[in-house]
């Protein structure tokens, strides 16, 4: 494997966004790119990352390899990279280590690190293709604000989507709260628009603790997409350039 990223910031942000949710992960490398799928310890949330080969220049992967990496270790090493450094990942066939180099674009500084790999026996889940009943695309900062504000009151949020819009509601010991958003096109700045596409109304309840965690990815993209269908996991997607993405799935809470 040899994969060169123009900006180390992208990998730094991705790892930062997921390291509190999952710890030991296989980075599955093949000629289409680098993928990661891992569930949190409670088996309630799942991270699915895809960094397409087009996000790297150049990208070469001659044989499929799984790089088992501890994200705390990776975070320690990535801290040594500046956001605008050029980052190159390298691994041999059947590797013991993954090699990372950080090149400063404006000086001759080159740093180089090896991280020991681990054997990770990871459950790999088959995620069915789903036609979601509701898809909401909103500013990622807005979604972060909603989850943060409501998590101060309650452990859970009900998300209801109808043709009127989407409503986030919570009930807690001190009282209750809600935030409603309507479909809205911001003509000056499309990134601030709220798009709702609905085939049937949905109402689902989720744990806010996980949603707050997912929002650590907000720095990766101006926009976030929420996909919901009744009685299936929520999909929260942060799109990256070149069709790469960071997705989170969260199992719902269901009434007794």
């Amino acid at each position: 494997l040899e994969a060169r990223l123009e900006q180390a910031a992208m990998l730094k942000r991705v790892v930062d966004a997921i390291k509190d949710l999952v710890q030991d992960c296989n980075f599955d490398c093949n000629d289409s790119g680098i993928a990661l799928q891992a569930m949190d310890n409670s088996h309630v949330a799942l991270v699915s990352m895809m960094l397409k080969s087009e996000s790297f220049s150049p990208f070469r992967c001659d044989r499929n390899i799984a790089l088992g990496i501890n994200l705390t270790s990776l975070t320690k090493v990535l801290r040594a990279a500046q956001g605008d450094d050029i980052l190159t990942l390298k691994a041999e066939d059947a590797p013991d280590v993954v090699n990372l180099t950080f090149e400063s674009p404006e000086s001759d500084r080159l740093s180089e690190y090896d991280i020991k790999l681990m054997d990770i026996d990871q459950e790999h889940l088959g995620i069915p293709d789903t036609e979601y009943a509701a898809t909401i695309t909103l500013p990622s900062s807005e979604f972060s604000r909603i989850t943060r504000d409501l998590s101060a009151l309650s452990e859970s949020v009900a998300i209801e989507c109808t043709k009127e819009g989407v409503k986030f509601t919570c009930t807690g010991d001190i009282g209750n709260g809600s935030v409603s958003l309507r479909q809205h096109t911001n003509v000056e700045n499309d990134a601030k628009s709220v798009d709702i596409s609905l085939t049937e109304p949905v109402a689902l309840t989720f744990s806010l603790k996980y949603l707050v965690n997912f929002c650590k990815a907000a720095g990766l993209s101006d926009r976030v997409r929420l996909c919901l269908s009744n009685e299936v996991p929520l999909l929260v997607e942060y799109g990256l350039s070149n069709n790469s993405y960071l997705r989170f799935y969260l199992a719902p809470k269901i009434g007794d």
């Binding site: 889940l125 088959g126 069915p128 809470k253 269901i254 007794d256």
Partner: peptide, 14 residues
Amino acid sequence: TSHQVKLLAFFNDR
């Protein structure tokens, strides 16, 4: 009250 469902209830274990 509601209880938390696990992902394995929805996704296949490969």
